[in-house]
């Protein structure tokens, strides 16, 4: 593993649904400031890893350590794990044990944002409203948990203006500046994908988890998306965890690729190393040499 400074360390993650083992003792790290791609055939357990990392599923066993500052010492993490707390402050910075945190806390405190395989925008709200809702927690604080906002305090008005400014910035980034007042559900598909990313970015995440962001996009929209992701990473020192089937996207933008098959890691390394790994090729083609011999034998009979 190349990662010198891991933002997210997945350690021995296992997820069982009844008798089915969706993820089996998976360990990998996502380095700070890098784009880590998670690939694998359909049903390999990629989205399950995402759901565990964002608190939507509670893993059967394993540890997911997210550290904001620098790399914390191993014994400090172990002390935190022993203490039973969900997060703690180490000399290097705050450390979060994601497997213990409920979904909204993962987003609000650990600063992990995500998008969904099937777009989940607030389609009946405008584009601008979608981006304002994403800034719920700081705005809630500024509105004094609604009380100050209700009596019209200036502090809330200022905070709302700042939220609108941030929304405007992201609208410009994704090229939807002129559609701020349209309903999100009215946007074309590609624009909805970009808006979902912008909405996630409005929560000011440290780690952005993208679940098949290029699914259903045409080549031009895909090119625009990769450009957007690269520019976001540059400008915001962001780390990205990416699930993607479009290999051109994966190979072009990721720094590090983890390959899953049947819930197990079969390869982990740079895009070039993974591309030439025979096990990855076999997993994607779905046939192993041994089986080819067997099929030929059956035909011969």
């Amino acid at each position: 593993m190349s990662a010198a400074d891991p933002l997210l360390a997945v350690e021995h993650l296992t997820m069982r649904f009844g008798g089915l083992i969706a993820i089996d003792d998976l360990s990998f790290t996502a380095a700070r400031g890098e784009i880590t791609a998670l690939i694998g055939p359909n049903g390999a357990g990629k989205t399950t890893v995402f759901n565990c990392a964002t608190g939507f599923y509670k893993p059967s066993s394993g540890r997911l350590v997210l550290s904001h500052g620098g790399r914390p010492a191993t014994d400090e993490i172990d002390v935190l794990t022993e203490s039973g707390r969900r997060w703690g402050i180490t000399p290097a910075g705050p450390v979060f044990l994601l497997e213990r945190m409920p979904d909204h806390e993962v987003a609000a405190r650990a600063k992990v944002a995500r998008t969904f395989q099937n777009i989940r925008l607030f389609s009946g709200m405008t584009v601008l409203e979608n981006l304002i809702v994403a800034q719920h927690n700081p705005l809630m604080l500024a509105s004094g948990w609604t009380v100050l906002g209700l009596i019209g305090a200036r502090r809330y008005a200022t905070a709302e203006r700042a939220a609108v400014e941030r929304a405007r910035y992201w609208l410009d980034q994704i090229g939807l500046g002129d559609r701020a007042d349209d309903a999100a559900g009215e946007l074309p598909y590609g624009a909805q994908r970009r808006l979902e990313i912008a909405r996630a970015m409005c929560t000011e995440p440290q780690l952005l988890c993208l679940d098949e962001p290029a699914a259903g996009l045409n080549p031009r929209e895909t090119a625009r998306l990769t450009e957007l992701l690269l520019s976001i990473r540059r400008a915001h020192s962001l780390s990205i965890l990416l699930i993607e089937h479009d290999m051109s996207v994966v190979m072009e933008i990721s720094d590090h690729v983890v390959v899953l098959d049947y819930g197990q890691k079969i390869a982990d390394g740079s895009p070039d190393a993974v591309r030439n790994d025979p096990r990855v090729v076999a997993a994607y083609l779905g046939v192993e040499d041994r089986e080819v011999d067997k099929v030929e034998a059956e035909i011969a009979e």
Binding site: D103, R114, R120, M125, I132, V133, A134, H136, S143, T146
Partner: peptide, 28 residues
């Protein structure tokens, strides 16, 4: 007034998509 405050927007967002709300850090 509440509709223009974060709580009101969170209500409407909740009506639109609860899972997305949770992914944005809203305590549903």
């Amino acid at each position: 007034r509440l509709r223009r405050l974060p709580i009101g927007r969170a209500w409407e967002a909740l009506r639109e998509d609860e899972v997305a709300c949770r992914s944005l850090g809203i305590n549903t």
